[in-house]
């Protein structure tokens, strides 16, 4: 791993160029984070007694743990839905003419061009008791009483999947585009059918994109406060809302801080699992 010291000269730019951003991060990211950590290490709301009480409380409280668990599970479900739906779109994108490519990329990017709030309300209109889905199914006579779609796990997963879809599709499109199209032909001429080609060549080579997409989608899905709360309603509680309640409604800042730190660590753990997988698969996509 030894790079010759001489090679540094060519590409060494003054570290000073990074200073503005570093300062920005220092004041608006590192400092609040440290303050959060400091707060979370107090046992009382007034912040007078030091201790790990808040963490102990969270880790021994079945309710808190279940909120954490269901949030992490929600992320996994959304990621899975995005992967299953996003992969074919990305695959298709690489195989159609330039006109259709423009259409596909527009459809993929469209969610990013409207506000999350607007999109979430659209889902309320679609999923509601008198919403589009129920109205259609009822008028077709498929169901008598409206299905409960809003305020369910299913509803939250579907809405979140739509909202986060670009984060999955874009890295996949990039990764698939980097695969030499001749590899498909080579595989085929060697006697492999299209499924074999997909599982032995296309999928392994797109793994870096899969992992990047999963990491982004997962991180975005579990922290999506607005969509989670609006579609999930009162019955479903996820970590962002939980910690908002503790901080804003109950004014229990030390506990809210501890929740944030634990949530942060949990997310970091999941993301680092993804990136480790990514590093292991680097032998594939690169070069």
């Amino acid at each position: 791993m030894g790079t010759a010291p001489a090679s540094r000269d060519v590409t060494s730019y003054g570290m000073g160029l990074a200073a503005p951003l570093a300062l920005f991060f220092l004041f608006f990211f590192v400092a609040p984070l440290l303050q959060l950590l400091w707060l979370s290490l107090h046992n009382d709301t007034a912040g007078l007694h030091w201790g790990l009480g808040q963490y102990l409380h969270f880790l021994t409280d079945p309710f808190s743990l279940s909120v954490l668990g269901s949030t992490l599970l929600l992320g996994a479900e959304v990621t899975a839905v995005c992967l299953v739906l996003g992969f074919p779109i990305a695959w298709l994108y690489q195989r159609v003419g330039p006109k259709l490519q423009t259409v596909i990329i527009l459809i993929v990017l469209l969610p990013l061009l409207t506000s999350v709030v607007v999109r979430t309300f659209a889902w309320i209109v679609i999923l509601g008791r008198q919403g589009i889905i129920n109205a259609t199914l009822q008028s077709l006579g498929v169901i008598d009483t409206p299905l409960k779609l809003l305020y369910t796990q299913f509803g939250v997963v579907i809405a979140l999947a739509q909202v986060q879809m670009p984060l999955m599709t874009l890295p996949l499109i990039t990764a698939l585009g980097r695969i030499d199209p001749n590899l498909d032909d080579a595989s085929c001429s060697l006697g492999a059918g299209s499924w074999r080609t997909f599982f032995k060549v296309v999928l392994p080579l797109s793994l870096p994109g899969v992992i990047a997409g999963c990491t982004l989608t997962y991180a975005a899905a579990i922290t999506a406060f607005i969509t989670q709360s609006l579609i999930g309603g009162g019955q479903m509680l996820f970590m962002p809302m939980y910690l908002y309640q503790q901080a804003s409604t109950l004014q229990n800042w030390p506990f809210a801080s501890a929740i944030s730190i634990i949530f942060l660590l949990a997310v970091l753990a999941v993301v680092s699992v993804f990136t480790t997988l990514g590093r292991l698969s680097r032998g594939y996509g690169g070069a």
Binding site: A186, S187, S189, K200
Partner: peptide, 15 residues
């Protein structure tokens, strides 16, 4: 078709 082909850029499977 049992036709073997060697591509100009070799197209070896990199992984």
């Amino acid at each position: 078709r049992a036709v073997g082909i060697v591509f100009q850029n070799y197209a070896l499977f990199p992984h």
